[in-house]
Design a protein around this nucleic acid. Structure first.
Lengths: 187, 187
DNA sequence: TAATAAAGGTATCGACTCGAAACCAACAAG
DNA sequence: CTTGTTGGTTTCGAGTCGATACCTTTATTA
């Protein structure tokens, strides 16, 4: 078994472990994923279509999961004013509160014995692996706004940044959010 | 977001990606996991109880999954001769054949652009993370026989190795198999 | 040895995921 | 003004998953 195979097997087992702890924390794994997504996604990307692309599921499946989350009072749908097909999604107060007990951001998941050097190597390697797989399946990367091809710094209009694709000013906080439309600069 | 957080998020997304590709390959993710497990586990560890411990699910859930796998003709149950409570599990020919198309061992999952050095760092880091999480939940590591506390090399009885716990000789091939009873030497 | 406990599994229930397919409403483009 | 596209919902069937109850077979203990 090569190191490469080992890595894949370990990721699969870790994924299973994550699912197990998420389940124990009271929600289905996919429900946690949606809450986390809505927390991290910018305002253009909080829709069912974006969640569908992010998860790589069919829209029917996502529609159901969103329905149960709304039933639980964790998210809220609001029809968009401009395009009345679109349902804007927002976390409710209860949703945000629950997210503070996210089992995945628990300090317990820290790799304390590894050097910052090793952390960086792992993060970079995993990111490369993920991006390669997403690309091979024609799936979007959902990277951070600030790493995007369309990200413009220092726009004159008061706001510090700018999206060249959507032609919209961006607040500082937006630059760290993830986006449906994001295209990595390097690509 | 620290590198540590990044690592967790990436593992979660990679796990989701793996599930998605497994689903596309015609079986449920957990079904692939069971087939893979039965392929890698030694003869003492191919039982429903061991699968239960490996997956971290309840025994009821595992029982159902095993039933659907048997219905599909991918595994076979056989009551143990000595302890008639135990159901020994084996892959059928069809099960082994299907495993050759395992989406997770596909060459596509290779990290070609990383150095062997980086591969080793990642494998070690992920392993440490997994073992820490399993330990914190009182779950067994299911490591390789050869890395076990009870592994004895060069037993006189013809067979090359020996299990000090089960007091049984072990073939060379056994030493790479994973085991329900395995205890890491370092622990 | 007889009673009791523990271990390995199965059966059933309810909530939920998941893909597939059919469908609907709102927008877009000719 | 039709035609096509996009964003979503609904329904269906198979299957996961935990919880609970249950049944055998083996182990322990009084």
């Amino acid at each position: 078994m090569t190191d490469n195979d080992k890595i894949i097997v370990l990721i699969e087992r870790l994924g299973r472990q994550i699912s197990s702890e998420e389940h124990a924390a009271g929600l289905q794994p996919v429900q946690w994923a949606v809450l986390r997504y809505l927390h991290r996604a910018n305002r253009f990307s909080r829709t069912a279509a974006a969640v569908t692309a992010y998860l790589g599921h069919t829209k029917g499946t996502v529609s159901q999961t969103l329905r149960t989350l709304e039933t639980k009072g964790l998210i809220k749908k609001r029809v968009d004013g401009k395009d009345r097909r679109v349902n804007r999604l927002e976390l409710t107060a209860a949703g945000k509160r629950l997210l503070r007990e996210d089992p995945l951001t628990d300090a317990a998941w820290s790799l304390q014995d590894l050097s910052p050097q090793q952390h960086a190597t792992m993060a970079a390697g995993l990111e490369q692996l993920l991006l390669a797989r997403l690309d091979s399946q024609d799936r979007r990367p959902f990277g951070q706004c600030r790493d995007c091809l369309y990200f413009g710094r220092q726009h004159p209009d008061g706001q510090p940044h700018y999206c060249k694709l959507l032609e919209t000013p961006l607040a500082e906080a937006d630059s760290a959010a993830i986006c449906f439309e994001q295209q990595p600069q390097s690509a």
